[in-house]
Design a protein around this nucleic acid. Structure first.
Lengths: 330, 330
DNA sequence: CTGTTAGCGCCTTCAG
DNA sequence: CTGAAGGCGCTAACAG
């Protein structure tokens, strides 16, 4: 491995001068600079990033801690993060917490140990781990899920509003007994989408029936099981609002398996984009999120905070959009 | 930030002793060790990974360079990699080359500069960048795509065989003019899947018609455009084999848009798993790959090579499986 | 404008 | 078994 000293010797200057040239500092004699540049290319010098990081006690890496790499929602988001990161000179370490606070904790520790330049996290529950980052003054942006009582940059969507629109649309389509399959209680997204559902019902003077509300796990299996339970009831629902993409797929699978016709017997609206929602028969009505933009925005916020650590925390809310397709029209 | 010296002072020993305790070395007086451990927890000491990396000139990071984070095939693979990596004490840096050799080059440079412990790469074309890694003695595993004339650990699937099965199945189902939409010529997967298609035709004494073969980009848009072009021909195909998941989706979209009925008018088989292939109407026949296992295997190979850098390169081929669903039965 | 010096935090000889 | 010393490669402060 060729070091800065090899280059210095080869160019007949000091290591400091080489460093200055490498880092594009002004105040270097053009003649020397040229000699250094030649040595640089001749020796194919590449700065050792690790040494540089130690010296500056900060790296050029961002950790993105998401709760499910298998969920296209999160990968689309990561794409948005990545594009911004690369332009800003950072690389992205993708960490999959699998909704497991312990795993999340491990990744937060790693981010701390590795002196990551910043962290974007979709927290799997309480604020504990995010607090560790904040306490250590590591720039953090929370994405997708809200954390109460902690001043941190946050990027969200208007969950409640989106859920309300979705539910109102089912009501307008003539469905009477509308169920809601939401996510784990501890997640703000689950709570807010449930609240939007309830608000729509109340706004249309419908009763909110507890037996039509299910808490599942934001996964396919959970959506399937919840739908199954709903169908087994004495008076089953004639429509369902599922609070994320994977659970929507699970619910639809269940309906298909049970031979229940969509949208005639049961109408379906899902939250989140679902890849190829339009190819599924019937095509699925969804509340679309600007996933890529979510990631982009979070990355932009992170870059700003890194540049200016003391600026006050801000919170950005992006908007969802209802895409009406076949699964909700009867 | 508390350093090893703070701990040493606090415990009344030298930094060397602390280091030994932290790293679980034997030959430390139990009494001292206990004192050190107490200091460790009292001060909440966390070793600085960057300093450690510099000292040992190796990190605990793997770079996984894939060509499309938007493709569920690759993310499923990454999951397999991640699970193994975590158990082996490595973190995974996910890099998205977007099929762009220049971007790929940048990420390879980053891996080199950051002294990554290893790289898993699905190369976007020629071997140049992989060679740089090999030359620098960075442990590498090539995944999904074959690189000729270079001794490197590789994990593949039986592309030709899978494609042959898929095509033979279309022939057996009674289709006559079977088209093939394959990927970029420079990618081994595209070439091999095309070869499998041709082999199946020849094996069944059918002519291989050049006008039924299209080279696209392994993306949705490419699949759509290729299908469109095929349909515009004088005698359009009555079936199509698409060589990856996204192109299959694109082709199906095109058929739907044009009002062509699947599988009655045109049969469809796609390569790669397609999430929710069974929910799409008609459900899609696919050649399934063991994606998670691909990632797992690559990670295992990488771990082995890191442990034993001089072992000869090996190549593992996993098997595909034909999942017959509705889109190919008439 | 340039070079010398020091040290980021850790680990690993090498003496003792 | 323990501690002192040196150095991984780089950059920032300080003289010159």
């Amino acid at each position: 491995m060729t070091t800065i000293y090899d280059v210095a010797r080869h160019a007949g200057v000091s290591a400091a001068t080489v460093s200055r040239v490498v880092n594009g500092r002004p105040n270097v004699d053009p003649v020397l600079a040229e000699r250094v540049r030649r040595a640089l290319t001749e020796l194919e010098y590449r700065p050792n990033a690790v040494a540089r990081n130690l010296r500056k006690s900060r790296t050029t890496l961002w950790a993105v801690i998401i709760s499910d790499v298998g969920n296209p929602f999160f990968t689309a988001m990561v794409r948005g993060v990545e594009d911004v990161a690369q332009k800003a000179g950072f690389s992205v370490v993708l960490c999959n917490s699998d909704e497991d606070p312990a795993k999340e904790g491990k990744y937060v520790s790693a981010a701390l140990d590795d002196q990551m330049a910043g962290v974007i996290i979709s927290p799997s529950g309480r604020a504990t781990h995010v607090n560790r980052l904040v306490d250590a003054r590591v720039p953090v942006v929370v994405i997708d899920r809200q954390l109460r009582g902690i001043a941190v940059d946050t990027v969200l969507v208007d969950n409640e509003h989106g859920a309300e629109l979705a539910t109102a649309h089912l009501i307008d389509s003539g469905y009477e007994r509308i169920a809601c399959i939401t996510g784990p209680r501890r997640l703000s997204t689950a709570a807010q989408r449930l609240r939007g559902y309830q608000r729509a019902l109340r706004g249309h003077r419908r009763a909110v029936r507890e037996e039509l509300i299910r808490y599942a796990d934001f996964r396919e299996e959970g959506g399937y099981a919840a739908m199954e339970a709903l169908l087994r009831q004495d008076s089953p629902p004639d429509a369902v609002f599922a609070a994320n993409n994977l659970m929507t797929v699970g619910a639809v699978e269940c309906l298909v398996d049970q031979g229940v016709r969509i949208p005639e017997e049961v109408g379906v609206v899902g939250f989140d984009n679902i890849p190829w929602a339009h190819l599924v028969r019937p095509s699925l009505t969804t509340v679309g999120q600007p996933t890529y933009e979510l990631g982009r925005t979070a990355a932009l916020l992170l870059a700003e905070r890194i540049a200016e650590p003391s600026r006050p925390a801000s919170s950005v809310t992006l908007h969802t959009q209802l895409h009406v397709r076949e699964s909700s029209r009867r």
